[in-house]
Design a protein around this nucleic acid. Structure first.
Length: 595
RNA sequence: GCACCCAUAGCUCAGCUGGAUAGAGCGUUGCCCUCCGAAGGCAAAGGCCGCACGUUCGAAUCGUGCUGGGUGCGCCA
């Protein structure tokens, strides 16, 4: 699925007012260079056009004069004055004031802000769509839980962050693949098989022996029954060598089906499931290691024991090592154990090599924070195997701490030892869970209180944003009842110059930030920024709504004045468009009415 | 010992890839409903941005060294 922004003939993104004005600034500076008032060939990359911290400074501020002062050999204020004079010739700029060390504060024609409203109405669900991806392909790998049981809370955040990031990137012009790497090649799936075998014995009327180290969860009982249905009692008196491989596959398939269902309950759908086990026996691991060997990055050697925390049974061993230090890692990493079998790192290298070979322009991995030590070696491998051409961004997702009414929450309904994803979704709901998981930056721990997330008050950001959307729908309902045609097409014809109150323009300015925010968030791979923006947008709207209490001219539906009502409702609807677009990135359904 | 993450208002956290007088919510104090949904809104108070150097026109943001908390460090994935 490929989307592109509308672009004008200069290739500038028309939907982003900040980008539009930045282009104007740069064009103007280029013209100044052409007529000799500035040197030719200046680097404009560092020039920014941003909303100023203090609204009193104007609508937008640019640092152009300060950035160019040194290379141009001129005083910043001198450049700023000259730039200001030229910018004022453009009808979009109504004021340009030099301030401080050389800032240029710009005030834009009100019609530009009003125009944002029309843009939102005509773009609809595409309002804010960015072009930063430019059709490039990105692979987002996330969750990748071992197929040994149902998903638990620890997986929820990674699943939501990964999926929201995928949605954000798709909205920003990337072609996105969501991928799950099934860790079905290691010892855990053997443990799973043995645990399932005990449940199989149980299904046949025998007493299961859930020894230490096996998985005790009762989610394996249905697996045992399914095994009985398939094999009857034929495996009961057989040794492990007869059934291990078969049950391993059978059980992990059932676990993966459970995990898919869990993900579906979170409204997460993967595009690709890749199996670790499938890498074995295909030569893919060997090929990946050989590729590294051809670069001179594989050697036989022994590692130094880690200082300060030396394992008790440490003995120097010769291993096959990957020279990851050549690509930024701190020590070289083993890819083969001393007995010649692969370490867990080897298939991971092969898997990432596979992703590189599939032609992605960028890779993103979402890991739990406890895998932080794994980041450098993985980046080293991808750097080596792609000749530094494919960037790998790894996002570490921190712990979620569960509470109920401020008390730590430990209960588990299903699995005996941990709170499952199902527990969370059943208690909090999919939309609430998803939104809450994005109310913190990925690398800080997040408190999740089952009581507070369902509270209907402004301290609950989910409610606060949904409530704004409900109010918006309430306005639309009321204006329809009053006979106004509130279709988007009709609203887009409104005379928006009737919106002149500072509070209304402020609302439009907030809307104008949306396309810019999408760009920033997608460049940083940080979907949480969308959640924060939605909270700010909702706050702006609640404020405007309440001003109607004191100032009746700010009420949205003005009896007997259809033209003014149409313009005001257009602003309201445009806000709703932005909220819906933002919620869509979070994967949250907008509600039309609070219960 | 080494690496990575975190440290910002009393509390929980944002902070635009270096911009101006550092923001929001909660809590505290005081206001706003004969009025489209007050499940809201407005205002005040609250800060050595962990510490110290450095980079430059300019640092919460970048670099170095510390302090404190977390995570991890060869035959587990």
């Amino acid at each position: 699925m490929l989307w592109h922004c509308q672009s004008n003939e200069t290739g500038i993104d028309q939907m982003n007012l900040f980008a539009e004005i930045r282009a104007l600034v740069i064009d103007t500076l280029s013209a100044m260079a052409a007529n000799g008032s500035l040197p030719e060939g200046l680097d404009m990359a560092q020039i920014a056009v941003e909303p100023p911290r203090d609204p009193a400074h104007g609508d937008m501020a640019t640092n152009a004069a300060m950035v160019l002062a040194k290379p141009a050999g001129k005083a910043p204020r001198e450049i700023a004055e000259a730039l200001a004079a030229r910018l004022l010739a453009d009808p979009r700029i109504v004021a340009a004031d030099v301030a401080g060390p050389g800032f240029l504060n710009l005030r834009l024609a009100t019609s530009l802000w009003q125009g944002v409203i029309r843009t939102a109405l005509t773009e609809g669900a595409n309002f804010g769509r960015a072009a930063v991806g430019a059709g490039r392909r990105v692979n987002v790998e996330f969750v990748s839980a071992n197929p040994t049981g149902p998903m638990h809370v620890g997986h929820v955040r990674g699943a939501v962050v990964g999926d929201a990031l995928a949605r954000l990137l798709a909205f920003s012009g990337w072609e996105v693949t969501r991928e799950y790497y099934i860790n079905d090649g290691g010892a855990q799936v053997d443990v799973l098989a043995r645990s399932a075998y005990e449940r199989y014995r149980e299904a046949n009327g025998l007493e299961p022996e859930i020894r230490e180290g096996l998985y005790p969860g009762d989610y394996l009982i249905p697996v045992g029954e399914a095994l009985k249905a398939k094999y009857g009692d034929s495996l009961l008196d057989k040794g492990e060598q007869y059934w291990l491989a078969e049950i391993r596959e059978f059980a992990s398939d059932m676990m993966m089906q459970m995990i898919r269902d869990d993900l579906a309950a979170l409204n997460v759908k993967m595009d690709v499931y890749s199996s670790e086990k499938a890498l074995y026996g295909t030569g893919k691991i060997e090929a990946a290691i050989q590729a590294l060997r051809d670069m001179g990055l594989i050697y036989e050697g022994t590692l130094e024991p880690p200082k300060g925390k030396e394992p008790e049974d440490w003995e120097p061993r010769v291993q096959t090592l990957f020279r990851s230090t050549a690509h930024g890692d701190d020590v070289d990493r083993p890819v083969q154990k001393s007995d010649g079998s692969w370490t867990y790192f080897a298939p991971d290298i092969a898997y990432h090599y596979d992703k590189v070979q599939r032609g992605f322009d960028e890779l993103i991995d979402i890991f739990g924070a406890d895998h932080g030590g794994y980041v450098k070696r993985m980046k080293a491998a991808v750097s080596a195997l792609s000749n530094g051409k494919v960037p790998l961004d790894i996002k570490l997702v921190q712990l979620v701490k569960l509470y109920k009414n401020g008390e730590p929450f430990k209960m588990s309904k299903r699995a005996g030892t941990f709170v499952t994803l199902r527990d969370v979704v059943e208690q909090a709901g999919t939309d609430v869970t998803r939104f809450m998981m994005l109310t913190r930056k990925n690398d800080v721990t997040l408190d999740f209180d089952f009581a507070k997330v369902l509270e209907q008050s402004k301290e609950n950001p989910v409610f606060y944003v949904q409530y704004a959307n409900a109010r918006i729908n309430s306005v639309l309902r009321k204006s329809r009842e009053s006979g106004l045609d509130c279709g988007d097409a009709s609203l887009a014809t409104a005379d928006l110059s009737l919106l002149s109150h500072p509070a209304e323009i402020a609302m439009a300015k907030k809307l104008a930030e949306w396309p810019r925010l999408v760009e920033i968030a997608s460049r940083a791979n940080e979907p949480h920024r969308v959640a924060f923006y939605l909270n700010e947008l909702a706050s702006e709207f609640h404020g405007l709504w309440n001003k109607g209490n004191d100032d009746t001219s700010l009420r949205f539906v003005q009896d007997g004045n259809a033209a003014t009502s149409l313009a005001k409702v257009a602003l309201v609807r445009a806000t709703g468009v932005a909220i819906s677009a933002g919620l869509a990135i979070l994967g949250v359904t907008p509600v039309e009415e609070m219960r």
